[in-house]
Design a binder for these strands. Structure first.
Lengths: 334, 334
DNA sequence: TTGTACGCGTTATCAC
DNA sequence: GTGATAACGCGTACAA
């Protein structure tokens, strides 16, 4: 690979001059700059960011830790992060944990070895202790979508209590009193918040919370399918199900179909996220919309601004929005 | 950040010894190794891969260039790549081009500056000249799913001619003779191959190819919707549509629904990829399955093996599989 | 306005 | 077995 020295030799100047010219230093005469740039271009020079990172103490890359890139919600977050990172010349190192805490820890170590300038985490379980260690280190990080109670940390997400409330109140208003909840992993804050809202709304309306209608999955379609099958096979089953995300809701829909339950006539199903497939005519899933792409952008923008000396505080709770489609309907009178 | 020197000072040895110990060199006495490792651990040392990369001439990262991370097909490829890369300690720098050739070129440059050890490209348009330059450079790369005619390059994908053939023959066997095609971007090889198969099969069966029923989109749901609307609004419209991927097919389904066309009674729709949403009970899209996750894994495995001196040739054409579900049916007798 | 010299954190090549 | 020393490619204080 051609280095700054090669360019210097050809241009008949010192490497320092080349470095300055390429970094547009005001110290260099314009014509020299132009000449050096031209030569660099001709030689196909691309600066070595490893070397540059070593001396500047900044790698020009950020780490993005995601539980499941296959979930359109996180794909959108990823897209948002990539958009702003790239616009500012940063690279994004993607880490897909598959909801596995071990992988997550191992990824964080990888990212630290790579000296990423900052981290965006969407994969945090509610009380993982490694976050404490991270908070002590100097590397800035943001939590997206999944908060953490253990450590005060910069965060951007939607108000999941409110989102859960919107969802469950919608069901209650439709006359449902037998409502089930299928969450994500039991240690994910966003899922817990949605559950808390679920219980709160039921209680407010004097509807008993039935433990046997509450279950946890791992935020995948398959898990939603399984949990749905189990829930809907009970002798006494709910007339509505609130799934803690859309992917799970799609699994529930699948379970309902296989059991011969008509949606929404026999069963109302409500999701969370508003992934693009929720709006398909064949699906028409009622759900709570989150600005996922926006969240990725906000997180990245904040992170990059911190890297340039901006304020280190961030706490953004965006507002979720109920999107009523066709998987919810008034409760059957039975 | 704690460096090798800090560890050396605490351990009372030279930096060289620490480096050797941490790299498990046989030159170091076992007890010294153990002691040094313990100290490194206590100090929270993580080796600086920037520095390491600089001296070793290898960054320990690969670049992954994807047209649309939001498309489950590419999300699966990404997952496959990440799985094997991380198992071997490599980082993956993700670049989402949104099908924009300018972005693509700019990403490639970013990745070269970051000195990635290799590239996985799924975003190549059929005759982009930058590939030639890439081929001349020493950085190894693989093309996944989208081939390139301009340059002989390592490739893993499915046999799109065969896949297209399976699809169209299925329609013909169902008695369809008025068949439309909605492709991806006009310069994407995989889309072109599927089109070629489409035309070949029609011709073989003595069915005229009607240009006005052939159109191109950009491989998104929205584009599929638009193209579908246009196609299905014609006075004379096809009884079946072959969409060059599932996302586009979903858009076509949406268009059909809005126009009051029943699928599959009035219109058969066939996709390509078999993304996870294609199998939903509400969708049941007939499609051609590609082993997307597998393709990502194969590409990464090959790339990493090349980095360790393995053979530099690769050409894997996997076999696509027709998955018949419920969006295709015999042609209406009309 | 440009060149010289040093250091960033590692690993590799010599010595001892 | 272990320690000094020289790279890797770049940015930058200091000198000119």
């Amino acid at each position: 690979m051609v280095t700054i020295k090669d360019v210097a030799r050809v241009a008949g100047v010192s490497p320092a001059t080349v470095s300055r010219a390429l970094n547009d230093s005001p110290l260099i005469r314009e014509e020299t700059k132009a000449r050096i740039r031209r030569i660099a271009q001709e030689l196909g020079y691309e600066r070595n960011e490893l070397a540059r990172g070593l001396v500047k103490g900044a790698s020009g890359a950020i780490g993005l830790v995601i539980p499941d890139i296959t979930n359109p919600f996180f794909a959108e977050v990823t897209r948002g992060v990539g958009e702003v990172a790239h616009a500012r010349g940063y690279g994004v190192i993607l880490c897909n944990t598959e909801e596995d805490p071990d992988r997550e820890r191992s990824y964080i170590r990888l990212l630290r070895r790579k000296r990423v300038d900052g981290l965006i985490l969407t994969s945090v379980t509610a009380e993982d202790p490694y976050l404490k260690a991270l908070a002590r280190s100097k590397t800035p990080f943001v939590l997206v979508s999944r908060a953490c109670q253990l450590v005060p940390a910069p965060y951007v997400g939607v108000d999941d209590r409110l989102g859960g409330r919107l969802a469950v109140e919608h069901l209650v208003e439709l006359g449902h009193r037998r409502i089930g909840f299928i969450g994500g992993p039991a240690d994910v804050q966003s899922s817990l918040d949605r559950l808390a809202a679920f219980e709160a709304v039921l209680t407010e309306h004097g509807i008993p919370v039935r433990e046997e209608w509450i279950s946890f999955s791992d935020f995948t379609q398959r898990a939603g399918y399984r949990a749905g099958k189990e829930l809907l096979r009970r002798k006494v089953r709910p007339s509505a199900v609130f799934a803690a995300n859309d992917v799970v809701a799609l699994g529930v829909l699948q379970a309902a179909d296989e059991l011969g339950l008509r949606v929404p006539e026999d069963l109302s199903v409500l999701g969370y996220d508003d992934i693009s497939y929720a709006g398909l005519p064949r699906i028409e899933l009622t759900t709570v919309a989150q600005p996922s792409f926006e969240m990725g952008k906000i997180a990245a923008e904040w992170l990059l601004s911190v890297l340039e000396g901006g304020p280190r505080r961030l706490y953004r709770l965006l507002t979720p929005k109920l999107v009523v489609r066709r998987t919810t309907a008034p409760a059957p009178s039975g």
